[in-house]
C-alpha cells in the first residue's frame, strides 16, 4: 500500500509539474477559475440577501455546499486529473500501452494529467469553507470525512461514466457531459429538488451523495447520517471498479473497438 501511494504520488508529481510548465498559462487558468467561482459566489450572496432562505437552507448552508463542491473538484483535478478525459483515453486505445505494464490501470489513467484550473477551485473551496460555511474546528474530523466521501462518490461517478466508452464510441464527450451534469446538480441547494429530479440526483447523477448528504451530516451529525454518507461512497466506488473491470474484460476480448 505504501509503495502504491509512493508510486502514485510520483506520477501525480510529474503531472503537476507538466501543468506548471507554461507558467503564464497556468496563472491565467487558475485566476480564471478563481474569478469564475467568485462570481458564482457573488450571485449566491445576492440571492440570499434578497430571499433569505430556500427550503430551509440559508447562505451558510449554501456556502458549505459550494465549499465542499469546489474543494472536491479541486482535489480531483489536481491529484486525479485524468478523470476528465478518461473516456477519450480509453477510446484512443491508450490502455494498450498501460496493459503491458504491471501496475494498476485505473490509478495510471487518473494520474496521467493534472488540471491547472483545479488549483483555482481548491483555493476557492478552502476560502469559502473557512470564511462563510460556519463550520468550527471541532467539525474538522466530520468535514474531512465529508470531503473524502464526496471525493470518492464524485470520482467513482466520473469513472463509471467514462466506462461507457468500453461499450459506445459516442461516449467521448457524453461521459464528460454527465460528470458536468452531476456538478451542476451539486452547485444548487439540495432542498430544491423534488420527485423524479431528486431520484436522479441521488442515483444516476449522484450529486445527492457527493455533497448534499455530506452537508446534512455536518449540520446534523449522527450515526445514521454518517452511515449513509460512508455506505453510499463505498457503494459507488465498488460500482465504478466493477464497471471498469467488466469493460476491461470486453476490451481485452477485442469486442470494443471504436
Amino acid at each position: 500500500m505504501i509503495a502504491f501511494l509512493r508510486l502514485y504520488a510520483l506520477q501525480v508529481g510529474a503531472a503537476v509539474r507538466m501543468s506548471f510548465a507554461d507558467r503564464a498559462n497556468f496563472a491565467l487558468q487558475v485566476a480564471g477559475m478563481a474569478i469564475n467561482n467568485l462570481v458564482f459566489l457573488t450571485l449566491w450572496v445576492l440571492f440570499f440577501a434578497g430571499f433569505k432562505s430556500v427550503g430551509g437552507w440559508g447562505f451558510s448552508d449554501m456556502a458549505l455546499l459550494l465549499g465542499l463542491t469546489m474543494t472536491i473538484v479541486g482535489i480531483c483535478g489536481v491529484a486525479f486529473g485524468g478523470y476528465r478525459d478518461m473516456a477519450v483515453s480509453i477510446l484512443r486505445g491508450e490502455l494498450d500501452a498501460l496493459l503491458t505494464q504491471p501496475k494498476g490501470l485505473i490509478s495510471r489513467l487518473l494520474a496521467r494529467e493534472s488540471l491547472a484550473t483545479a488549483w483555482g477551485d481548491l483555493a476557492g473551496g478552502i476560502t469559502v469553507l473557512s470564511l462563510f460555511a460556519e463550520v468550527s474546528l471541532s467539525d474538522l474530523p466530520l468535514l474531512i470525512l465529508a470531503l473524502s466521501a464526496g471525493l470518492t462518490g464524485y470520482l467513482s461517478a466520473a469513472i463509471s461514466f467514462a466506462c461507457l466508452a468500453f461499450w459506445a464510441s459516442g461516449a467521448r464527450s457524453f461521459a464528460r457531459d454527465l460528470t458536468d451534469f452531476t456538478l451542476l446538480f451539486s452547485s444548487y441547494p439540495g432542498s430544491i429538488y423534488q420527485g423524479a429530479v431528486k431520484v436522479v440526483a441521488y442515483s444516476i447523477l449522484p450529486a445527492g451523495f457527493v455533497v448534499m448528504a455530506p452537508v446534512e451530516m455536518l449540520r446534523e451529525p449522527g450515526l445514521k447520517s454518517v452511515a449513509v454518507v460512508v455506505t453510499a461512497a463505498m457503494a459507488y466506488a465498488v460500482l465504478a471498479a466493477g464497471l471498469f473491470h467488466l469493460g476491461l474484460r470486453r476490451y481485452r476480448s477485442g469486442a470494443s473497438l471504436a
Binding site: K52, G55, F181, L184, Y188, S191
Partner: peptide, 25 residues
C-alpha cells in the same frame, strides 16, 4: 444540457415562489 439546466434552475425558483417568505424579494 439546456433541459437539465432548466430543470435545476426552475426547481430553485419554484421553491422560492412556493415558500414566499415574508419580508423578502
Amino acid at each position: 444540457f439546456y433541459v437539465i439546466l432548466l430543470i435545476v434552475l426552475s426547481a430553485l425558483w419554484d421553491k422560492v415562489v412556493a415558500e414566499r417568505l415574508p419580508g423578502t424579494l
